[in-house]
Design a protein around this nucleic acid. Structure first.
Lengths: 212, 212
DNA sequence: CATTTCAATTTACATGTTGTCAAATTAAAT
DNA sequence: ATTTAATTTGACAACATGTAAATTGAAATG
């Protein structure tokens, strides 16, 4: 009930242009984080190196992201929002069939290929750090759900639907794509192989396979 | 040419039993490293925690392994030598055919399943640290070579042999197995799915597939 | 334009981890 | 009993993360 004794008469203040500058700082930091994570790996990415490259102070990074893990989560959110993922709606709208599979595989493989090294690092961090790992699991569950729906609507084919969905999810996982691209040297080739494997896994005979 | 001036008259000394004790220390440290890596992940595995659990001093670990990375490489070598991998000879001796594939898949999936969490961490470290990553690449190349030979001797089937080998290598990779086991919940089921996918990828019709 | 507000900077500090060094200790080998 | 070498002990430097304060500076307000 007591009125606050030392109210220093605040007056309204609109951040306005200062917000833009904060956003620029955020963007610069995340850009530097992506670059350094890709080029140098996780251990040699430090708050100091980030600050140096992005042109702000170590403190500012802490103010904006809290901790080093916070920066990484922001990077992860950024690439998740990045081009490609929003096209999933489009795929789920498609009539079930081979064309839908082609799109499904294409979206993911394209996304994996575009951010390959970065994703390798981020997924690696998830693998060594149980806490960060949970964040990534959540994302993977989404792809698994999409795979389940596709297998359901697709219908035909033999075998347990659950297993078919698991196979589709695993075949379109980043880890598989990365391993495959490593084996065969080309990302485009890797995508083609994934598509072939998915077709066989779902018992769609290689219909429109580059026929001429 | 000058004779060393201060030769303090060393006499021969056989380490004998002391070597055994060093080996015990080594083993204890590696056991602790495996346990902590699995349970706590990489960041919370410290030289101090290792020393505490294995009953030696931090210094001793440095004497025996050099650096933290050195401990990890030793862990990696240990699980690579671990049961399973030496049976690869056996597989390569087998006459080419479905039985050989079953063994090939069985050996790797069994190995992946036995050391799953540990391998996830170790591969994760390889993914975030370019230096450590090269060690793992070397191992993967071996599996790729084995896959190449199997595809060659198998002969039949359509498609580019290189692509078939890459597919076989990627389907039997740890990353794929791990993703698959995550999706379907059971490691045994994951192995069955891998085998099915390998058969389809190499165009061996599901011959002895649990029939009846 | 003078004042207010708040992000950013500067500076300092506490903590934890890795890695090294030298002296003291201990147990095995001679 | 003496020699040898691993292990321990204790101290240290370097670096990274994270926190806390006072100060600065630029934008917003009246």
């Amino acid at each position: 009930m007591t009125k606050r004794p030392k109210e220093p008469e605040k007056r309204p203040y609109d951040l306005g242009k200062r917000l833009e500058q904060m956003d620029e700082s955020r963007a610069a930091i995340l850009r530097a984080a992506k670059a350094q994570l890709t080029a140098k790996g996780y251990p040699r990415l430090t708050m100091a190196s980030l600050a140096a490259e992005s042109g702000v102070t170590r403190q500012t990074i802490h103010n904006l992201f809290g901790t080093k893990t916070g920066v990484l989560e922001a990077v992860f959110d950024l690439i998740a929002l990045d081009s490609g993922m929003e096209r999933m709606r489009e795929v789920m709208m498609q009539p079930p069939g081979d064309a839908q599979l082609v799109k499904f595989v294409g979206i993911f493989c394209g996304f994996w290929a575009r951010n390959r090294m970065l994703l390798r690092r981020v997924h690696g961090i998830g693998a060594i750090d149980p806490e960060f790992g949970r964040v990534i699991e959540a994302r993977n569950r989404r792809r698994w759900m999409a795979a389940t729906r596709i297998v359901e609507t697709l219908g035909r084919g033999d075998g347990d639907p659950q297993q078919r969905a698991a196979a589709l999810a695993a075949l379109t996982s980043f880890e598989f794509f990365d391993a495959l691209a490593e084996s065969c040297g080309s990302e485009a080739e890797a995508e083609a192989i994934v598509l072939g494997l998915v077709r066989r896994a779902l018992a769609l005979r290689d219909a429109g396979d580059a026929g001429h």
